[in-house]
């Protein structure tokens, strides 16, 4: 097992390694970030607002004189955790529905696909804005909004994979053997979807991080006193004229997370080739 991981890491390109490092870094921060914070993220500890980098406050202070580093370390868990959960939900639901439609009767398949096509043609930001307007922005509802918004995309990819795989000779062989739909979906089709869907999961995670931080930036996402990285940018927007680290650092933090995931996905071995059906 460890050998497999080691050889996998060795196969990564330079940019892939950078991506992997960034992803691992942010996952760690999401877990242990709050324990590393030098100050209470809610406390007014600096003498000055919008202070620049100092020894006491490595990333400066915010518009109320709070420690930016501490706020960042505790905000990361919202950005990473919420997006991870939402992406998992979206991908799992998308894959499950896709498998269901791949082995179910024609009318069900067509109905579900038509409905998903409808949802896809509502641009994702618009869709999530409408949803937020109606259900509000508590944390569980934000998670739900993000996963509903990105589930149809995941369904579409998973379905096209599943439909292609369902045409493969080995699936026909299983049918002729008399296997049931559940066996075919789970044992014959699903294992061959995992690799491409993993890449899609990464992409969806990036989209959701951007969506949630965008919502927070607009004041429609994570609500105070909780704060994710997007909220940090929003609350410090008045520091823009002074080029305060309080506004730039959270934005850069998000960028390193999303760019990292993207670089990692792009370097995944066999991506694309597998989808083309070659060995």
């Amino acid at each position: 097992m460890t050998n497999a991981i080691r050889s996998w890491v060795k196969a990564l390109s330079g940019s892939g390694l950078i991506g992997l490092a960034l992803v691992v870094f942010w996952l760690l921060i999401a877990i242990i970030g709050p324990f590393l914070a030098p100050y209470d993220p809610g406390a007014f500890v600096a003498h000055d607002v919008f202070a620049s980098f100092t020894g006491a406050h490595l990333l400066g202070s915010d518009y109320l004189g709070r420690d930016v580093l501490s706020r960042l370390l505790s905000g990361a868990r919202y950005s990473v955790g919420l997006a991870l959960a939402a992406a998992l939900l979206a991908s799992t639901a998308g894959i499950a529905l896709a498998l269901l439609t791949a082995v179910s009767p024609r009318w069900l398949d067509e109905g579900v696909s038509r409905f998903m096509d409808t949802l896809i043609s509502i641009p994702s930001k618009i869709f999530s804005l409408v949803l937020v307007a109606v259900v509000g922005s508590s944390l569980p509802l934000l998670l739900l909004v993000a996963s509903i918004t990105y589930m149809p995309g995941s369904f579409r990819i998973a379905r096209s994979l599943a439909v292609n795989l369902a045409q493969m000779d080995y699936v026909q062989v299983a049918r002729c053997r008399g296997e049931g739909a559940a066996y075919i979906a789970i044992r014959e089709i699903l294992p061959n979807m995992i690799h491409p869907m993993l890449a899609d999961f990464g992409l969806r995670f990036v989209f959701i991080v951007l969506l949630l931080s965008g919502l927070s930036f607009l004041g429609l996402g994570v609500q105070p006193p909780d704060a994710d990285l997007g909220s940090l940018v929003r609350e410090n927007i008045s520091g823009l004229g002074e080029a305060a680290p309080a506004i730039l650092m959270p934005a850069i933090a998000i960028a390193t997370l999303t760019v990292g995931v993207n670089l990692l996905i792009d370097a995944l071995p066999g991506r694309g080739r597998r989808m083309a059906g070659k060995e």
Binding site: L210, L240, G241, I252, A255, T258, V259, N262
Partner: peptide, 25 residues
């Protein structure tokens, strides 16, 4: 490839704030 890969993942507010900082401030 690396450039466009990174660009698609940037949050808009980072690009916008950087643009303001450079061209305006």
């Amino acid at each position: 490839n690396v450039a466009t890969l990174s660009m698609v993942a940037l949050p808009e507010f980072l690009v916008a704030t950087l643009a303001v900082l450079v061209f305006s401030v």
